[in-house]
Amino acid sequence: MELTINGVQHHIDVEPDTPLLWVLRDDLKMTGTKYGCGLAQCGACTVLINGNAARSCVTPVGELGSAAITTIEAIEQDEIGQRVVAAWIRHQVPQCGYCQSGQVMAATSLLKQTPHPTDDDIRAVMVNLCRCGTYNAISAAIHDLAGDVGQEGAKK
């Protein structure tokens, strides 16, 4: 089976029902994409499929065909992704960091669809879990990218 990941074709030999997550992590040794729940509940495994956020733990590779897959490893090659990472650094978003690959992918997907997201858009789209509670920093970083100061980031 052929998969196009970060612009590179990979040949892999797996059952078509194998989740993309484990092909990335175990076959291709791309461990930036995280396993958190395996049940579409946490979002740690988020990647982009044709630019849209997808949860790789519930994405059978057999469904992918020639779709363009982007993982966190190539996020800085993406123009929006690069801006997201820069904002993440400006706002010092990560704590333990485990959820952040997924958060960065989700934010990139949001900004691709909605360049100027409102608070409501952010609440609607940023549904990945973060046990460290970096939510306000995430909102602030996205508002920053959207070119407004936003409400969520307000502190003190």
């Binding site: 949860r55 519930v58 949001l110 909605t114 409102t118 409501d120 609607a124 789209v125």
Partner: peptide
């Protein structure tokens, strides 16, 4: 189901957040 549209439709936001990934 676009972010802006779905907030006005009951259930659409939940669908996207909980159901659409699968």
């Amino acid at each position: 189901l676009q972010p802006a549209g779905r907030q006005g439709i009951p259930g659409a936001q939940t669908y996207m957040a909980k159901c659409s990934f699968c």
